[in-house]
Nucleic acid binder design. Structure first.
Lengths: 302, 302
DNA sequence: TTAAATGATAAGAATAATTCAGTGGTCTAA
DNA sequence: TTAGACCACTGAATTATTCTTATCATTTAA
């Protein structure tokens, strides 16, 4: 029969993650020979060694890699489905959360998040950069648990909620002339600017709003990362317009000053996205709460 | 332990589909008591009857429904992953293919498709209408195997290929005056038209092309379905512009004539979409071939 | 070189699943 | 209304599978 013992998939997944039969056995609360036997059953089924011993670790064969690639998202989906009826205990259960973060969100979220999670050593976080176009499919296929991004149009298989509002502020080098009492609109428009954008052309969000107000600023540099832009501002008279949360972080490490924008501009709405089907899964609910804590700067335990 | 025997999920899925333990047992090549025992193990685990006997069939409880909803897509993903290394035998293996078809594609595809599949009684097809925005997430989550639509921008988790090109033609009532020798551009523009569109406003694709050519036609009726539009054309002097494949089908049943468009217009590119990760899965490859057969009007066995 | 650790293997033990046989309930048709 | 067919559940016995203990051959690290 074509029928594979589905429990072996769980063993396969663990060996794949741990890279060792002994460690996999520990994780599964089994003895090492039990795992070894399971592996040999898998080997029979696939007619492939699946994992080969290379020195101290079991390295997956190409076939095993290909299998893992397609099988593991399904497995996590099933585990989510099964676990939705059981409570989640973050202190004892092992769980990997995968998170799609763009640009500066990694720096503003991860440090505080991981600090809050130190008391949960079994919790693992994977952060990856996800293209906007991929976001929904990654969430739907189970490759991603959450994504954080500005407000985007999504299908109704994807849920989202506001995580935090971020005002735009201006970063200027410490010795930028004439900014002791903040920045006037004249100064802002007279200065030259760094535009941070992942695209190679077109205006940034702040330029959209400025042109709506009928003014225009001069761009001296277009680059991809806010961090690089800030290091430029540190050493020149160029200004950088960026979200406040990240600016406050940079302020503590670089010789720059954070100044309010001299004009009103709508705040950046940072949203959290997830797959609607797994909305009720306790572990995901718990992680969502953790993310909200970080976003609103609440301490670990309320 | 929180650990559920994953093999029970397969039993659950089969009971859910078959609505009967006896039939589920047959499908699983087991005896009925074996399935009954499996079910009782599931009941212990979920602390819920899961299926209750109502007359002649086992009806899932709300909890079972909710569980099935989230679990089954994962299960099919896993089965795809496992099966990618085994050949698929459409004559003997049971398999359900789910297909996202919009509007007229159901009428133009399904009859011929199901005719071609009569020699494969184990093959089941589910066709559902999918909103464009949902398409990719449905494919990614495993709820949909294939979708058919015009060319759309997609993420690279989704693959696609041209299924067929469809020319636009005009449908006119049988007794429409002065169309014995086809339709001139003057006649086309002088007539009043039915515009078929699922949106409530905005031009149709043909209007886009017409305005590119600097002309404009008069819309007398805007409606949602080509079939309704044809019945209108049958009884009035209104014209309907639509894809040729569907027009040819209608022509055989309604008192209408199919006329070529009096101007050149780009053909409609009908594409087939699927999830890239399961590209190599034999059963999906086989079904893709079936769809191509239908699209190109080739017979069942070449 | 040696001690510790790792994966494979063999054989017995433990566990789990399947089958068989029988019960009671439900539907259908005479 | 009732007999017969069908269906799901239960318990005991059997069968099959999986796990464990013990051991060996390699490999790694001290």
């Amino acid at each position: 029969m074509n029928r594979l013992d589905l429990n072996l998939l769980h063993v396969f997944d663990t060996i794949f993650r741990e890279g060792s039969l002994t460690r996999a056995a520990r994780a599964l609360h089994l003895t090492q020979p039990a795992v070894s036997h399971s592996l040999s059953r898998l080997r029979d089924h696939f007619n492939d060694p699946l994992f080969t011993r290379q020195g101290n670790q079991m390295v997956p064969t190409p076939l095993a890699r290909r299998f893992a690639e397609t099988m593991r998202p399904g497995l996590t989906q099933i585990q989510s489905a099964v676990n939705q009826f059981h409570a989640f205990d973050p202190a004892r259960q092992h769980k990997t959360f995968s998170l799609g973060l763009r640009d500066i969100l990694e720096s503003t979220f991860l440090p505080q998040l991981m600090k809050n999670l130190t008391s949960y050593p079994e919790i693992e976080v994977v952060s990856q950069r996800i293209a906007r176009r991929e976001m929904e499919t990654q969430l739907a296929s189970g490759k991603l648990d959450f994504a954080v991004d500005v407000l985007l149009p999504v299908s109704n298989q994807t849920s989202h909620e506001l995580l935090r509002k971020d005002q735009l502020v201006v970063i200027a080098g410490e010795h930028h002339p004439g900014i002791e009492n903040g920045l006037t609109m004249e100064q802002y428009l007279a200065a030259r600017h760094v535009l941070v954008s992942s695209r190679t052309e077109g205006p940034g969000i702040e330029d959209f709003e400025l042109s709506r107000q009928g003014v225009h600023r001069r761009i001296a540099l277009r680059c991809q990362h806010y961090y690089a832009a800030c290091r430029v501002a540190e050493n020149t008279d160029l200004l950088v317009t960026m979200p406040e949360t990240y600016a406050r972080m940079i302020e503590q490490q670089a010789k720059v000053r954070v100044l309010p924008l001299p004009t009103d501009m709508p705040a950046l709405n940072v949203h959290l996205y997830w797959h609607t089907a797994y909305e009720k899964e306790p572990s995901l609910l718990w992680f969502r709460e953790q993310l909200h804590r970080v976003a609103s700067n609440r301490p670990d335990r309320p």
